[in-house]
Design a protein around this nucleic acid. Structure first.
Lengths: 125, 125
DNA sequence: CCGCATCCACCACGATACTG
DNA sequence: CAGTATCGTGGTGGATGCGG
């Protein structure tokens, strides 16, 4: 059995299902936030510190989307000053292993891609 | 050993490495084109037929990027009418398993995400 | 048949300022 | 502390038409 038979998983209904989900988790920050939250419950500011470069706005939006999609739970404590904690749901945690697989590939082939790009790029851009 | 220790792979240098690679393979079509090419060498038009909804422009751009990054090889036959075939390189093929892992997750949790989104959405947007 | 060029709409994202 | 509001920008992607 060749592995390509499995790719029907991706192509499936023409890729609509996969694309729909991928379009959500493949934005600029989602994967990074999810990976960071694997450490446990974190507050808004802690997240902002642990994900270098993310803006308040993007962190808010990313967390809202993750919450809406059921990957992250949000707990607000009615205190002064306010405190909000974010944590992965079980479904959120289930995303970690596949995400790691992709991240591992990325790290492993990063250099090779750069090489290839450099060899290709001299003529234009 | 908890699995979260592995997430340093993702967070690593602040996520720059992973993000750089992910930003390339997580655009709208790349993963789908790679998955489709796992079937073997394909011509431009065949690809366009096998990836429903993709425009000529996007297919061209996606293939150029994949070629530049060393994931896809392009072979043009100097014939009339012209014929061009695309195929995965070894590095391209190595992307299939991690991509499948993510795709599997997507298919498996798609319904659950939709549910969650529906339950969240009534109030706004 | 293959694929590039042009025009255009949209939205992801960043910076900044303000609120409870 | 944890956001929301607003503005501006670049890149992504769709439609169409032309060229080798």
């Amino acid at each position: 059995m060749s592995q390509y038979e499995h790719t029907c998983l991706i192509r499936g209904d023409g890729g609509r299902t996969v694309r729909a989900v991928l379009d959500r988790i493949c934005d600029k920050w989602t994967l990074l936030v999810v990976a960071t939250l694997d450490q446990g419950r974190l507050r808004f500011t802690e997240l902002q510190r642990l994900v270098p470069g993310i803006s308040q706005r993007m962190l808010t939006l990313t967390l809202r989307h993750l919450e809406r999609d059921g990957l992250v739970s949000r707990t607000a404590y009615p205190e002064v000053p306010p405190r909000v904690e974010y944590a992965l749901t079980p479904m959120g945690r289930s995303l970690i292993p596949p995400a790691l697989a992709l991240a591992g590939w990325a790290v492993e082939h990063h250099a090779q891609i750069q090489e290839s790009r450099a060899a290709y790029g001299p003529q234009a851009e």
